[in-house]
Design a protein around this nucleic acid. Structure first.
Lengths: 338, 338
DNA sequence: CCGTGTAACGCAAACGTTTGCGTTGGGGGT
DNA sequence: ACCCCCAACGCAAACGTTTGCGTTACACGG
């Protein structure tokens, strides 16, 4: 309701002094600063964001693009944890988050209209043609998680390390004697899937095993599809003796399928799940898990974007957030060695 | 990059004419309007939101408060569908959505700083003390879904109709001969739970049945807790012959529990699920369902808020969005009549 | 006592847009 | 021919803040 000029009059100073005092800049004595701060408190003063943005050219808002504002993205534990990480950093750095849900216009328009200082794209199955204009216009922008190819036209991207942990998990199963190891994947073009399938293939090859495509079915990342695909695997003439699941939802669906057939874990079937959340933390038996630190990924992405905004240049290197493979009780010796 | 003045010079008109032309107001001839529009296109002109907001006092943004920016809210099908409805309306009406995730400051501060034109509170387990200042300051605000009590201090709220559909479902089960009917609830203080439990109690009473508290356990709304609570119910000395579940997640957990015990639906146990999403649409057998039109709830809330913003007064009456009870194959005659 | 540096503060422009009011010109009614 | 009205357009203030620059006053060293 009140503005800077009003405070200035009551404090018998100029409005520039009020601005400096309230923004914590130097050039104002402690006594006057205290008086101004108290006055602002009493008058219930709030700075007008629009006026501030108009002159300072910064609005303190980052745009969050969730390409599919659909059931899937909001519902997915993976994405909701990324959002948690983003929220934490953004709040800490004093920014706000604007959801960019109006996809009819280009993403860049939100920057050009000065509604946001930078853009954070969440989701790796994004239409490249809507992404490229961001880098071409020099708009501070980060894509998380990762990106499919490393074209120079793509913005900076942040991802977890996906190769090592998967390699370890597959090696672990092989060392337990398993030869028929399945891996339920997600969408074919997801970088998330690609890195892991390569690790899987490498581990097989390094141990002298053959890669068989029928053991690496795709899914749509959902619980229902995890259930369906797991059923297909178990119906194979040579059903796998061990299975890895790519994400939380697939894991839940697959475990449901296994439970519905009364197969014992790990006596009859070994299971390794990939977890972003801790929804499966209390499963019986405790699950051997590839834990993906998704919250950290979100934090790293937000940090990188804010650094781009504030320094005007891209960070040197984005650290890959390491995943960790932990052996628990859901993986055991192969029941029927060949 | 370019501004209104630049366009004005090139078009040999004043900047007020440019403003009127671009905003579709009358008072500018067709010829000049066309020239200005083309010029704006060529110059890649975007209006500066800050400057516009500064003078017009409207920013075209609504603040979205999700009290728990936690795993729960983002993950829940219920809330994600509300967000879908909100998104649709907000986009259609030309607004943007800002996530209010900085809970350290009061919600009202976002309005006073003119970052938002109104505030939409999503979630009914909200701290009242953070809500009240909204109405007291006359800030356009809507709470969805519903609110616990009808204190005049509370803002406008939007909810689905919850009583009738639940009454019908319970009556349906009673008419099938069931006498031991369980109802897995959510948090005790959720309005969502309260209305439904009253309908449940009324239906029992109207049919001369006794209400037994051990059949109406609380849960935390999650899949895991649905699983746990369903297990407790089935372990009762007098286990129920029919069960209702309050939301999607509880339903999934409860169905998992039933499946893990190999109980046949509906021969051994009748089930009625409450659905906001269609995650359970293809379940076998097809489920008797209380369908809650959550997307519509979100739409109604957003519409009401925008009306408050634009007219300055609260809408007369918010329609209750009706839920519908549909009988399918998961409810059958009571297996062991008493 | 003088010169110099510095902290504290005021002045006023600038940011880009909207909008009330004033002016102009031309057309239509009497 | 006169008056009046309205459409089309310009002028300039206003929105609230930030900030570069100028001014003042005071301390301090020489």
């Amino acid at each position: 309701m009140s503005n800077i000029l009003e405070i200035a009059k009551l404090a018998h100073v100029s409005c520039s002094t009020v601005s400096r005092a309230l923004n914590g800049r130097k050039g104002v004595s402690d006594a006057i600063r205290a008086k101004i701060v108290k006055l602002a408190q009493d008058l219930d003063y709030y700075p007008d964001s629009s006026a501030r943005a108009l002159v300072s050219k910064r609005v303190g808002v980052i745009g969050l693009i969730i390409p599919r504002t659909s059931e899937y993205t909001f519902t997915s534990p993976y994405y909701s944890h990324i959002l948690l990480g983003i929220s934490a950093v953004v709040t800490e750095r004093g920014y706000q988050v604007m959801l960019v849900i109006n996809e009819r216009k280009s993403y860049a328009a939100f920057y050009h209209r000065r509604m946001v200082d930078g853009i954070l794209v969440v989701g790796n199955h994004v239409d490249d043609k809507k992404i490229w204009p961001l880098t071409e216009s020099g708009i501070p922008s980060v894509v998380v998680p990762g990106f499919i190819d490393d074209s120079p036209r793509n913005p900076l991207s942040v991802n977890s390390e996906n190769y090592d942990s998967n390699y370890q998990a597959v090696s672990h199963l092989i060392e337990l004697g398993h030869r028929r190891i399945a891996f339920i994947l997600g969408y074919p073009n997801s970088k998330y899937s690609v890195e892991r399938i390569i690790a899987y293939q490498d581990a097989l090859r390094d141990h002298g095993l053959e890669y068989r495509v029928e053991y690496t079915p795709y899914s749509d990342f959902s619980v229902a599809d995890g259930f369906r695909v797991m059923g297909n695997l178990l119906d194979l003439p040579k059903a796998p003796t061990a299975v890895l699941c790519l994400n939380d939802s697939i894991s839940i669906g697959a475990l449901d399928q296994i439970k519905s057939r009364n197969l014992r874990i790990p006596e009859e079937l070994s299971v390794v799940v990939t977890c972003a959340s801790d929804m499966l933390a209390h499963y019986d038996p405790p699950l051997s898990t590839i834990k993906v630190p998704v919250v950290s990924v979100g934090k790293a992405a937000a940090s990188a974007l804010i650094e781009m905004i504030e320094t005007g240049s891209a960070p040197r290197e984005i650290p890959k957030i390491p995943s960790t493979f932990t052996i628990r009780k859901s993986t055991g010796p192969c029941p029927r060695p060949e």
